[in-house]
Design a protein around this nucleic acid. Sequence first.
DNA 1: CGCGTTTTTGAAGCCCCTCAAGTGTAGTGG
DNA 2: CCACTACACTTGAGGGGCTTCAAAAACGCG
Lengths: 240, 240
Amino acid sequence: MPNAFVDKIRSYVPLTPEDVLILTAACENVRKVPARYDLIREGDKPESVFVVLEGWACRYKILPEGGRQIVAFLIPGDFCDMHVSVLDEMDHSIATLTSARIAMISHREIEALIDSRPSITKAFWRTQLVDEGVLRAWIVSMGRRDAHQRVAHLLCELYVRLRVIGLAVNGRCEIPLTQIVLADSLGLTPVHVNRVLRRLREAGAMTNEGGKLVIVNVEQLANIAGFDDNYLHRKLRRVA
Amino acid sequence: MPNAFVDKIRSYVPLTPEDVLILTAACENVRKVPARYDLIREGDKPESVFVVLEGWACRYKILPEGGRQIVAFLIPGDFCDMHVSVLDEMDHSIATLTSARIAMISHREIEALIDSRPSITKAFWRTQLVDEGVLRAWIVSMGRRDAHQRVAHLLCELYVRLRVIGLAVNGRCEIPLTQIVLADSLGLTPVHVNRVLRRLREAGAMTNEGGKLVIVNVEQLANIAGFDDNYLHRKLRRVA
DNA sequence: CGCGTTTTTGAAGCCCCTCAAGTGTAGTGG
DNA sequence: CCACTACACTTGAGGGGCTTCAAAAACGCG
């Protein structure tokens, strides 16, 4: 049975069959969750670590005036805050964007993994550093790129991340995000996102099929965005 | 002899006298560095962990078109990327903003600390989670706050962080950043930062003394920014 | 004292927002 | 099978916040 979490960890470090068994066992507590469901809210005391096995989720913050800012997208294999138990409460919320399968791992199990499995611990560190790199890249985008570059850059990031987990092939992948969600993550309005997407569509970089956004030409998006994949520590093009 | 690094760690967890000795010893390799000096550049292979003992530094990225985006400020006590050795190369650069004293700790020493000192390890985790919280807060600011709120929010963040290390008292502190640096961190132009600062000055929230920006009324800034200190896991007002 | 950098101020313009209305499209229930 | 509803998407018109360009004043450092 495929497990996105195991696959992700394996993409960072080699795993022994025993490692795989232990990781798989850690994911036994699985919940099916509908779209737009809050897994945890700002202010809550975290009780366990979430692992996305299937579907999409996001971290977000709500502002006093009511606006929402998404600060990260979580795709299959992603997990959150293995050390978060050392802080009192969440400083942001996490919600699903599509229906999803979520594994919940207790802190005790996570710490047991960290204490007993050096290679898994190393993989955890790597994922954390990559996540921070993504946060920094978002800041760069919001600070110094215009709307077109910004949209294109996000799509490139998502493409690379999806390709790693086998959900993108030949410069093509599906992204189940509404224009409203995109706007909330990019610091734009849905109206403007709509106009930007239209131009990207007209340029032949993407299409809109069945309510989903489909990337059909990453190269072009990368050109528009000035995308450099170094911060993901993965390559946009698979090296031969 | 005071050590900002030890003080910061101590602000997160209780330290035994032995812990203090070990941390102090780890900082023996100190360099004096002038302002605007690159400690490490994007693409470099990191060789050690930097700790800011005195002065200010920043993480930044240069865009293809030449613009600079600052993605984090480092103040005394801050250190960077204890696990960074697990990645091949830096995805951003780090430079001083003022003249500074920087301690350099080898990865071997860091890992020895992590392996042998549980309380210090816990403090490292906390600092990392707080740093991530700051990155997310920056994204929220850039995405959903206008220029006035954005400037005010950054000043509030810096105030809280400075207060923790004893560099702010009674709602007042000095910030040695030029308007150009502020602009590069906020995703604005220096011209507009100037206009925003003028209004904050006229409102009595801050002043400009001797080339330094001085916060004189944090409460007011917090009101303008809609500042919520939860993400720093420290209080804006010291609790009685 | 002189020079480079930062700060300041003005004027014009554009990118993106706001407001508004209309068009799909999927799911629901009669 | 077709209203009916709830969203998301689309498109237009007008406005405002921030940028760009330009130039002068003030500062700080050798």
